[in-house]
Design a protein around this nucleic acid. Sequence first.
DNA 1: GCCAACGTTGGC
DNA 2: GCCAACGTTGGC
Length: 157
Amino acid sequence: MNYWLMKSEPSSFSIDDLQQVDFEPWDGVRNYQARNFMRDDMKVGDKAFFYHSNAKKIGIAGVMSIVKAGYPDPTQFNPECGYYYDPKSSEENPRWYLVDVCFEQAFHDILPLSEIKKLPELDDCPLTQKGNRLSVMPLQEKHWHAIITLAQQKQLI
DNA sequence: GCCAACGTTGGC
DNA sequence: GCCAACGTTGGC
């Protein structure tokens, strides 16, 4: 099983929104590196942190699981999807992929990025490195467990 | 709202 | 293939 971190701006989609649906197609990712992870590496049963970016409280909001592996993002084919529509993509040769995710648990409060940065185990994690803009990133098992342990210490789980 | 870091685009 | 210009991300 693999571990991941996936970012979303809570003003457009938050962990509370995820909790209210059976599953969610993680659409709209338009970055090749993130695309490759979703298309090639994410498997059913993998776990991912739900990260709130560009928000009042920045950090990890909870845990979700991957319930469907990579498949073409349908919004890229639909001109009505506006910003997500990609005229250079086609159903025969899709450019963008997504996975379906499912709610697992919400932390009682956001685990702040500032706290996560203090973990020595996270020094080699893309999340805490400067200029990182990856919205979907793999985590090492030690990253995952260090974050879970911190959440437990802070009684967020 | 600012701005540093980064990715993409397009002319050459 | 280079690289300047531009757009986006995302923390602060």
